[in-house]
Nucleic acid binder design. Structure first.
Length: 226
DNA sequence: GCGACAG
DNA sequence: ATCTTGTCGC
């Protein structure tokens, strides 16, 4: 039995959700608040506790407007292409605790740059019908040309078979590995990298996602690990 | 058959 | 993602 078998039954769900993705800029601009989402795990690989963090920030000074977190026992394994089924549950729990919602979310993972065009950010965005952008630290699918080393440089990420543009490879800082940005929901392919770059200050990871990551890193140490 | 493979 | 020691650079 392969690793993907437990998920093969969800292919129809993924295709259904993918058909509902909107690649138009249907969010408030200029953006008032930007949100960041990330998940971390307590122990190792399987059967551990997943901790999700949601942070809402003001782009003006990157102050935290609101934040929430949640932890959940997790036994869903990580299988490329099915990350959503592992992280969505705990992310929704954290999301529901927020008092203030952002105009757009930056999610740690792929948007439509996914085999079925429904990566974590797109899955999350469609489920809640909220604007979302996928910010992955490495490539899941797609091909691209070489990217200049200077911050702000970008090249299109396209489907290796059809040539369809599915995202943007973006240099968020000079001389660092690029980010793989792709729309999640209610954001266009052209606008996604602009929003992400506007959130990159002095680090490779944009502020909202970075804040969420720092939050869960501290949180998981509070949880009993076995 | 042999790699590739978000987090 | 997680597990880890040292090391390079501002």
């Amino acid at each position: 039995m392969t690793q993907k078998e437990p998920f093969s039954n969800y292919t129809i769900l993924q295709n259904t959700l993918a058909s509902r993705v909107v690649l138009e800029d249907l969010f408030l601009r200029p953006v008032r608040y930007v949100g960041g989402l990330d998940v971390s795990y307590s122990k190792r690989g399987r059967s551990s506790t997943a901790c999700a963090g949601a942070v809402v920030m003001n782009p003006e000074d990157w102050s935290v407007v609101d934040s929430a977190s949640a932890c959940l026992e997790n036994s869903v394994p990580y299988v490329p292409g099915y990350l959503s089924f592992r992280e969505i549950p705990v992310l929704l729990e954290a999301y529901e605790k927020l008092q203030v919602l952002p105009d757009v979310w930056l999610v740690d993972g792929a948007g439509i740059a996914h085999p079925l065009r429904i990566g974590l950010a797109a899955h999350f965005g469609v489920l809640l019908d909220v604007p979302a952008i996928g910010v992955a630290k490495s490539r899941l699918v797609g091909r691209h040309d070489n990217l200049p080393a200077e911050k702000g440089s970008r090249v299109p990420l396209e489907d290796e078979k059809t040539g369809e543009v599915i995202g943007t490879v973006l240099r968020s800082r000079t001389d660092v590995k690029p980010l793989f940005v792709s729309p999640g929901h209610r954001v266009s392919i052209e606008t996604a990298p602009e929003v992400v770059l506007s959130c990159c200050t002095r680090y490779r990871i944009p502020e909202p996602t970075r804040a969420a990551h720092n939050m869960v890193t501290v949180l998981k140490k509070t949880i009993p690990s076995s």
